[in-house]
Design a binder for these strands. Structure first.
Length: 114
RNA sequence: CCAGACGGUCGGGCGACCGCUGUUGCCUUCGGGUGAUGGAGGAAAGUCCGGGCUCCACGGGAGAACGGUGCCGGUUAACGACCGGCGAGGGUGACCUCAGGGAAAGUGCCACAGAAAACAGACCGCCUUCCGGGCCUGCUUGCGGGCUGGAGGUAAGGGUGAAACGGUGCGGUAAGAGCGCACCGCGCUUCCGGUAACGGCGGCGGCAGGGCAAACCCCACCGGGAGCAAGACCGAAUAGGGACGACAGGCAGCGCGGCGACGUGGCUGCCGGGGGCUCUCCCGCCUCGUCGUCCGGGUUGGUCGCGUGAGGCACGUUGCGAGACGUGUCCCAGAGGAAUGGUCGUCACAGCCUGAUUUUCGGGCUGUACAGAACCCGGCUUACAGACCGUCUGGCAGA
RNA sequence: GGUCCGGUGGCAGAAUGGUGAUGCAGCGGACUGCAAAUCCGCGUACGUGGGUUCGAUUCCCGCCCGGACCU
C-alpha cells in the first residue's frame, strides 16, 4: 500500500472527510476530496462496501483504485489533500485506461488539480 | 466405439515494466536507502463436529437435570470422521443408499374410510338348532317353501385402509378354523463357522408379540465453562463514584464529633448473615456490609501470543484398508481500514465470425471456474469452467 | 473471530403429525340518487433440497436468506 503515514485509518477520519469534502462521481469510482491547507503529502483512504461483491471482488476493486491513483500521482502532485476513493460495482470490470481517465476527471472537478 | 461406476491429481505456463509486504546482509544524516530471498486455497468458505493452546471454576462424594452418540470390529491425539465387515433396500452389472440398540418397563398416537386400529371382538354374511316362536303360501293334511325374531357355532367370503391377529394349496367340517399336512414366513434352540455383528445345517413350536422411539421414554457410552476480541506485558488517561429498591445486624475495642450524657454504615476482632463454586444434600474453599437494576467516568496505542508443526516431500518395511513404523531431506505467508498486486505481450484450450483450393493453414473477437489466510491442526458439508490418470461394469461391432 | 434466533398470501400474524385460521389491503355483488360505513362471496401462502412416517408447515439433516448479541 502507500506508506502508512499516507493512509486514513480511523473511522473518525473517514467521517470528517465525508462531512466536509467536495464529492464527484464517475462510472468507475466516487471521489471525496478535502483540502487541509498545508504542504504535507496527501492522505488516502479506500471504501469498498459489500454491495460491490464478495471479498475477491472487493479486494480487486480496492487494488485497482490504488494502482490508478499511483499512476496519476506520478505526473501530478496531490499535496495538502485528504482523499477518499469509493469503489463501485463497475470498478472491477472497467478497463484500466478508462478508470485512470475517470480518476483524472474527478480530481479536476473537485479542484485537487487544475 | 457407445453408455456408465469408483478412486485420484491439477486447476493456466513463460516474459517485460511499475508496486506492496515479511525475513536478512550492507550503508545510514536513524527519516530511510540498496541487494538477496519468501509471499493465498482445495475448498482459505459455512462454522456442523473433534483436538491443541489460553484464562476462569479448579476440593471430594452421591443423586438429578441438560446435551450428544447408538449394528460389529478396527484406525486415530480425539471425533458425530475414516476403514473393513454384517444386515436391510435399490440397480442387468461395476456399484450405490441407510440416525441400523430396545416396541413381551411404562405412557401416548394411528386422521379419513371401515363392523372393528390393538384386545380381542363381530356389521353384512355362512351354518346348526330351538321356542316345533310369529306371518305368508303350496298341496299329497302333516309335510314342504319363503320372510322375520330369539339362542348358539364360525372368521372362509364382503368391502375400507398405509396397516386387519401369518400366506398358498390339499385334506377336513354342519359351516369353518394351524383343526391336520406340505412349502414359504415367524419365534425358540442343539451343533458348526466367525473376535463379534451375524450366517449355515438340523430340531422344536402350530403362530404368540401390528406400526411409530428423526413421539415421550428405557438402556449403554461420552461431555466443567468460555474462547486469540482467549490471555500476558509496557505506556497513556480517568475514577477511587452516584441513584433507587430489598435485607440483619449484635457485642467489644480504637478513631472521629461533643464539656458531657451520647452519636457515628471510619477501622479491627468475635458471633451471626449474604453472595459465588450448573441444580439438591453433606463437609470444604473464596469473598464481604451484601445482592439486584440503572446512571456516570477513562482507554480503543504498542509488543508478545504468532508459526518446528498430531508439519511437507521422497524411499523402504508392514497391514485387505483407514493407517503405523523407520531412514533421509526441507523450513514453506504472517497482514492489521488489513500485504500477497496492476498493466501489457506471447503461448495453451474452448466458442463465434471469417479468408484461401475440402483435408489443412491463417486472421479477428470473446471467454478460461468457485473463490481471499486473520491462533493452529484433523474431519464433515457446500461451491467449482475445464483438463488429465488409473481400476472396473454393461452393450454393440470386429479379429 | 465467535454465540444465538427466525423465514407462513401484497402486509401483519396464529395453528396438539391428518381440512392452513384471522385482520388490513385487492376483486365482485348487495345496500345508496352517488359514495362511505355495513353485509355476502372470491382469489392469493408454509424459503429450498433430502430423510423418518401411511401421511410433514410441524420431527431430523444439509443449503439459502434475514436479524440480534459479544467488542
Amino acid at each position: 500500500m502507500f506508506p502508512h503515514s499516507a493512509r486514513l485509518k480511523k473511522r473518525s477520519q473517514f467521517l470528517a472527510v465525508a462531512a466536509r469534502a467536495r464529492k464527484a462521481p464517475a462510472p468507475g469510482l466516487v471521489l471525496q476530496a478535502l483540502r487541509r491547507d498545508d504542504d504535507e503529502p496527501a492522505r488516502i483512504g479506500f471504501t469498498v462496501t459489500k454491495k460491490v461483491g464478495n471479498s475477491v471482488a472487493r479486494n480487486r476493486a480496492r487494488r485497482r483504485l490504488r494502482e490508478a491513483l499511483r499512476v496519476v500521482e506520478r505526473d501530478m502532485g496531490l499535496e495538502g489533500f485528504d482523499l477518499v476513493l469509493i469503489g463501485r460495482s463497475g470498478t472491477g470490470q472497467r478497463c484500466f485506461a478508462e478508470l485512470v481517465g475517470d480518476l483524472r476527471r474527478v480530481l479536476h472537478k473537485t479542484g485537487v488539480v487544475p
